[in-house]
Design a binder for these strands. Structure first.
Length: 502
RNA sequence: GCCGGUGUAGCUCAGUUGGUUAGAGCACGCGGCUCAUAUCCGCGUUGUCCGGGGUUCAAGUCCCUGCACCGGCACCA
């Protein structure tokens, strides 16, 4: 049976998730739901990254034990993901035993391969930050946060022989053009690889918050090296071989464009060193800006996803994120535009369509619809074409194109209603059959559109399907079988407005 | 500095491998319908597809160049 394992980045828990974080999870969720709809056995992983100094720092500020703080933040994150209907199958935290065991095992395996060595890391170190500062973070030689002069220090550290894997990585990029998408990101990584790689330090000294190196317990694994390993830890690496073989390698890592390097260079090199298969694909998505500006809490340019979901509903927010932003590109979010799209796509188009179809079905036929035997459908070809274009787009993660295709069917149905004029047919007794057929067709088209839009708007589309006479659980719907033009009698259900115009 | 991207209707953007009168949504104007959430349908207005040069029978779509804006350039989930 076909399977699909996809992941998102795990998040630092030092603050609440903002809309940009939610964007990543929602788009990944749409992909996961699409695969399930295709009948593919899907495993969707998310989680939290807890071994960061920022997190440790934040816990201390709040007077909490780091672990207790992380427990609290897990609830905060889970609440947001629940509100947005993000259907992950597993949620991993890097402080869990299964993760620690996997990190310990993988680091040991990389060491056994001869790819770790002791060296010295030197650089500007800000004592207040407890962190090394790259030059770009220094202003006039001072730490930009604390306005103090950092110290130049040397620290013994363990290094990973990243440079050793440069050629193999290049070969892999050549042989597997889809490994990193979109192409902008792939080109960036290719140039980086062509320029050569430097080894990276993978340990930190003098920190207790982290996972000890198996062969040097006085040091902990650097948070990045630690974090990446969650993708194998979650599916049983070092703890459940059978499960690990069943799910690894991942089919898709969904990550932000800022961290593609870690996923498309460092992570594959780690796996090569350990002799493990590489993930099939990495997708580096863009940013969601707020009124044209990069989202930032300190600048007051961030949006809380819960506020956005409360404003017009989780599904309208999800649709906005996947339909209005070309996946892989940066996009913009404003309240004005969110409301504009809500009114245009949902209130005026889809919502109004669902309502008018249900009302006509009841007004003219008591809610019971059935196609006329032998009648030729005027919408079936259009629906088939939409489904085809939708699948091509969704298979390649062109989520915005897939959504646009689905809305073409909504438009086609509204046009069809205007052309067939059911209200005229209803006044003409000898055109009963035409009315039967027209009513059936519009309901059938709406049913198909609702299935296509279900990955983006699960709750709303489940309700639309119910109203269009869908019987049986949503989980049993299959894209190929259930989006072909169907016959059969059905009972249409009326209901309150899904999306009142605002 | 090096590398890359973007620049298309008033606004937000889509435009596969170069091919007929350049598209969508919103906004605006006119017309139609009334089942529907004053919704829907049709028609229409505005574009030197950033400027300049070139290749081609043919370029928004390829090449060169100028301008403007943005991003990447390694220990930032």
């Amino acid at each position: 049976m076909a399977r699909f394992y996809l992941t998102t980045a795990i998040d630092y828990v030092n603050s609440r998730p903002h809309l940009g974080t939610a964007y990543e999870k929602v788009t990944a969720d749409v992909i996961a739901r699409y695969r399930r709809l295709c009948g593919v056995s899907t495993h969707f992983l998310m989680g939290n990254d807890e071994h960061s100094q920022n997190v440790y720092q934040r816990a201390l500020e709040l007077g909490l034990e780091p672990r207790a703080f992380c427990d609290q933040m897990e609830q905060v994150f889970r609440e947001v993901w629940a509100k947005l209907d993000v259907s992950f199958d597993d949620f991993i935290r890097t402080t869990e035993d299964r993760h620690k065991l996997a990190v310990t095992a993988l680091v040991q395996r990389i060491a056994d391969a001869g790819d770790l060595y002791e060296g010295e890391y030197e650089g500007w170190y800000c004592v207040s930050c407890e962190a090394f500062k790259p030059d770009k973070d220094l202003v006039d030689g001072e730490c930009s946060i604390h306005q103090t002069r950092p110290e130049w220090i040397k620290e013994k550290n363990h290094f990973f022989r990243l440079s050793k894997y440069r050629d193999r990585l290049l070969q892999h990029y050549e042989a597997t053009p889809m490994f990193l998408q979109p192409d902008v990101r792939r080109n960036e990584m290719l140039r980086l690889l062509e320029g050569g790689l430097e080894d990276i330090s993978v340990s930190r000294t003098g920190q207790s918050w982290g996972i000890p190196l198996p062969f040097d317990p006085s040091r902990v694994v650097y948070v990045w090296f630690d974090a990446l390993i969650n993708y194998i830890a979650a599916v049983g690496y070092a703890t459940d071989d059978e499960r690990f073989r069943a799910w690894w390698p991942a089919d898709l890592h969904v990550v932000g464009k800022d961290i593609t390097r870690f996923h498309a260079v460092v992570w594959p090199a780690m796996l090569m060193s350990a002799g493990l298969p590489l993930p099939k694909r990495v997708f580096g998505h863009g940013w969601v800006n707020w009124q044209g500006q990069r989202m930032s809490k300190s600048l007051g340019t961030s949006v809380d996803p819960l506020d956005a979901a409360d404003r017009l509903g989780p599904d309208p927010l999800r649709l906005y994120l996947v339909k209005e932003i070309a996946y892989g590109h940066d996009g913009d979010f404003t309240w004005e535009r969110f409301e504009e799209r809500y009114n245009a796509d949902l209130a005026n188009n889809l919502g109004n369509l669902v309502n008018r179809v249900a009302v006509m079905a009841h007004k003219y036929r008591g809610g019971r619809l059935a196609p006329v035997p032998g009648a030729i459908s005027q919408l079936a070809d259009r629906a088939a074409d939409v489904v085809r274009r939708y699948r091509v787009a969704m298979d390649e993660h062109q989520l915005h194109t897939g959504m646009a295709a689905a809305f073409d069917l909504v438009d086609a149905t509204n046009e069809f209603i205007t052309r067939s004029e059911p209200w005229v047919l209803a006044r003409t007794p000898d055109r009963r059959a035409e009315l039967d057929q027209a009513l059936f067709e519009m309901a059938e088209a709406v049913r198909i559109a609702a299935i296509l839009l279900w990955p983006a708007m699960p709750a709303s589309c489940t309700e639309i399907l119910r109203r269009m006479g869908q019987v049986g659980p949503i989980s049993e719907i299959r894209l190929d079988r259930d989006t072909t033009w169907a016959g059969g009698e059905r009972q249409i259900v009326k209901g309150s407005l899904l999306w009142p115009r605002i």
